[in-house]
Every structure is written in C-alpha cells, then in structure tokens.
Deep mutational scan, measured.
Amino acid sequence: LVRYRTISKIPQITLNFVDLKGDPFLASPTSDREIIAPKIKERTHNVTEKVTQVLSLGADVLPEYKLQAPRIHRWTILHYSPFKAVWDWLILLLVIYTAVFTPYSAAFLLKETEEGPPATECGYACQPLAVVDLIVDIMFIVDILINFRTTYVNANEEVVSHPGRIAVHYFKGWFLIDMVAAIPFDLLIFGSGSEELIGLLKTARLLRLVRVARKLDRYSEYGAAVLFLLMCTFALIAHWLACIWYAIGNMEQPHMDSRIGWLHNLGDQIGKPYNSSGLGGPSIKDKYVTALYFTFSSLTSVGFGNVSPNTNSEKIFSICVMLIGSLMYASIFGNVSAIIQRLYSGTARYHTQMLRVREFIRFHQIPNPLRQRLEEYFQHAWSYTNGIDMNAVLKGFPECLQADICLHLNRSLLQHCKPFRGATKGCLRALAMKFKTTHAPPGDTLVHAGDLLTALYFISRGSIEILRGDVVVAILGKNDIFGEPLNLYARPGKSNGDVRALTYCDLHKIHR
C-alpha cells in the first residue's frame, strides 16, 4: 500500500512540481520508500527539464536528425535550378540546329562534286560548318556529364541527390541515346576521305529529338503553341524528305545512260545542264529549293507536275512521300480545326451564355430598361472574369491554397485601402477568403433606401454616388468604403439613402 501511494504521487509531482519531503505519510521509514524516492526525484528532475525545454521552444527539443539540413553532394545540380533551365534551352537550340543542318550536310555532301578544292585539302579548321559541328559534339558530351550530376524525382516524389543513384537512373534511361548522339564521328573518321560515311553517321544526332519531343509535351495545353509546333514538325519532315529526294537524284545521276532524272530535267529547265562528264548542272541553292518544293507539294497532295519522278527509285520514294503525307494530314492537320476551336472556345461560351440571357429575357418578357441593365451587367461581368467562376475553380483546392490565391487576387485593395494598413498577414488572409466580388454598370442602383444592410462594401474600381431623395450626399471612388460596420450592432440596419454607380464599378463586399 505504501508503495502504491508513493507511485500514485508521481503525476502530481510531474505537473505541480511538489516535493515529496513535505508529505508526512511518505516520510515513514520503510525500505521500499527509501529505494523508490531517489528514482522519483530523478524522474521528476528529468520531466521538469523536458517541460522547461518545451515551454522555452528551444531548438534542442527536436531530434538531432530533424535539425540537420538535407545534404547535397558537391557538384550536384538541382533539376529545378536556373542554371539547369538555361542549359536545357541551350541544348534545345543545338538539337534544332542539328535537326536542320545534319540531314542537309549528309545529303548535299554525298558524292558532291561542286567546283573547288576537296575538304581534305583545305583542312578541318577552315570549314565553318565542321567547326560548328565540333562545338555541338562537345556541348552534347558536356550535357552527358551534367546529367550524371543532376537530381531527379523518383516514384515516391522524392528528390534524389545521391550521385550513385543518379548515375544508375541515367544509365537506365537516356544515357545510350545521348551517348550515340554525342559521338564525334568527324574526329574519329577525319582524314579518311569518307565524307559520305561521316554525313550518314552524323544523322545519329537526330535521336535527341525524342527527348525534345517529350520536353515539349508540357506545352500541349496551349493551343497556339501546339499549332506552332505542328507546323514546325511538318516543315521539318518536309526538309528531311527534300534532303533524301536530292540524295536519290544525286546518286543516280552519274550512272544513268539517259538523262531522265529530276536533276537533269531541272538543269535543262533553268539552262544549267550537266555536261557529258557529269559536272556542271544547277547550283546547290536551286537543287535544295526545288527538292523542298517537290516534297511540300507531295505532302499537301497538290502535285503540280513541273517536278516529277521519272526513275524507279524516284517513283518509289514519291509513293512513300504520299503515304507520309496522308498520315500527316490525319495526325496534324486533322487537329488544326480542334485547336482553332479551342482557341476561340471563350468567344463561343460568351455567345452561348448571351443567347441564354436573351432567351430568358424573351421568355419572361423583361421590360426594355431592365433588359438593357441585365445585358450590360452580363457584358461587364464577362469582360472582368472571362466567364470563369472563381468560386467553382477554387473549390477543388485546399483552404490554405485558397487563402493564398484570394490574398493575391485582392492584393491591390488590401495594400491601398486604409482600414487594412497594419493588419497582420493572417488577418488579411482571413479577410480575403470572405470577400465576394460584384460588378455594376453605370446607372445601376446597388442599394435602395430602406434596404437591409448586411454587408460592408469596398470599391475596387469606378465611382458611385450616394443620394437622399434627389440630393447627392457624397461621391465615392476607388478604395472608399460604404455599408454597415460589421458586428457593431446586434441587428442589421437599414439604408438611409440610395447608392448608384456612376461608372463601371468593381466592388468587394463582406457579409455579416
């Protein structure tokens, strides 16, 4: 019993810090008490220290592992850092350059016999395009090294910054494609005289377009951006097909006994025919423009016929181009109408809503002055909100995010209106959640004399007048207030005048 009563005193000691020596009952000389009392004092002292730490809000209350900052290894790049964003855009520009100039170089340097010394005699450094290609190869190699040090988000939505895990993730992902696209074939085969082989191998750079397509997928929600990307894709495919079309004609031209190829026909049409040795002929500019003209006309199913396939190889390629053109029509131009419709969806919704308003007016036989006010209010409210119901949009977000959005939407009023000066951010967040926005066209009466005042109004834009009878008592403008002081009276009061809008007004109100 003594032991039980001794232990039962522990909660009292913990909360009230009572010393055991003052209790005459606990001072009985028993061996059990002498053993338990020192333990009680020690526990009391420890609990006292913990309570003191909690009340003082000291940093040592938290466990040590929670006080440590997340460790980022040296030379690790955050995937959302500004440097990584700028670097990704730079790589994107280099990939676009590669997609345009690599097929052009591979096709127009394929057994090209233009006048001038061969590239091997001039030297590697004197070729501007080769120098640019070398810079692109170096940048792609540097990009691989950067990807080995860039964080990523795993399946659990955690940012991984450990170098080993980053390397394994990159090896399992895009490393092989990036490595093949970054191989400097110019340096590996330079001086061997195989410019045709170098041009063909350099087309491996186009593998990076797969990554670019995935990154550009984030802009699919913007109709104008999608339309622009589709047109660029169409032009890029036409450019690639033009390079292939020229390569076919250029390879067949020296081996044909009869002059029936499209390059021969082009030379005869523009007065620059090929001679018996295969030299001469149109310039590279004429060849490229004509090839691009043929691919565009074939892809769009126009086909004027002034550039036509004559050999079997050219006919087979033309059939493939027609098939590609039909697929592009289905996948690209078939979506253009939907994209344009999405661009004008706001206008369509406006006309639909206006039609419903006019049908309501016609069905209920609203008189002319009231009908005009109804239409003007709808037009003004639509121009202010673009038909978007803010309350319906915010309803799907958590309250903390709703408060931040409301604070942002009402920031101008909260910053410049005098009653809100000096208020804490928590108070402003709470008030912003209570605001209701209303609009009024010129001549609209917001409050009639004798109406119950259940709200306090803040003028965000425009001006109003307060009338008693036919006498203008006051004219209020931006950041002015009218209405009933909230919670100042037990019952809502009545208006002693009319409140009429002089201009288009936007008002925020808080109800009782």
Rank of each mutant, 00 (worst) to 15 (best):
T76R: 01
H79N: 02
S81F: 01
W87P: 01
L90E: 01
L90C: 07
L92H: 03
L94T: 14
T98A: 01
T98D: 03
T98I: 08
T98K: 03
E114T: 15
A119K: 15
T120N: 15
C122A: 01
G123M: 01
A125D: 01
A130R: 12
I135N: 01
M139N: 01
M139H: 03
I141F: 11
I144W: 01
I144P: 01
L145D: 01
I146D: 01
I146T: 04
N156H: 10
E157Q: 14
E158Q: 12
H162Y: 05
H162S: 13
G164N: 14
W174G: 04
W174Y: 05
W174Q: 04
F175Q: 01
V180H: 01
P184G: 01
I189T: 13
I189D: 13
S194I: 10
E196H: 15
L197T: 05
L200K: 03
L206V: 05
R208F: 01
V210T: 11
S220D: 08
E221I: 03
E221R: 13
L227Q: 03
L229A: 05
W240T: 01
W245Q: 01
E252Q: 07
M256N: 15
L263K: 02
I270A: 01
G271Y: 02
G280Y: 01
P282G: 01
K285L: 13
L299E: 01
S301W: 01
S301V: 01
S301P: 04
G305L: 01
N310C: 01
T311G: 01
G325Y: 01
G325D: 01
Y329P: 05
I340R: 03
R342K: 04
Y344N: 08
T347Q: 07
H351M: 03
T352F: 11
Q353D: 15
R356C: 13
I361V: 12
I366Q: 01
F378K: 04
N386W: 04
N391L: 12
A392P: 03
A392Q: 13
V393C: 08
K395Q: 08
P398I: 01
A403L: 01
D404V: 02
L409Y: 03
N410E: 02
L413R: 01
L414C: 01
K418Y: 06
K425A: 09
T437Q: 09
T445N: 04
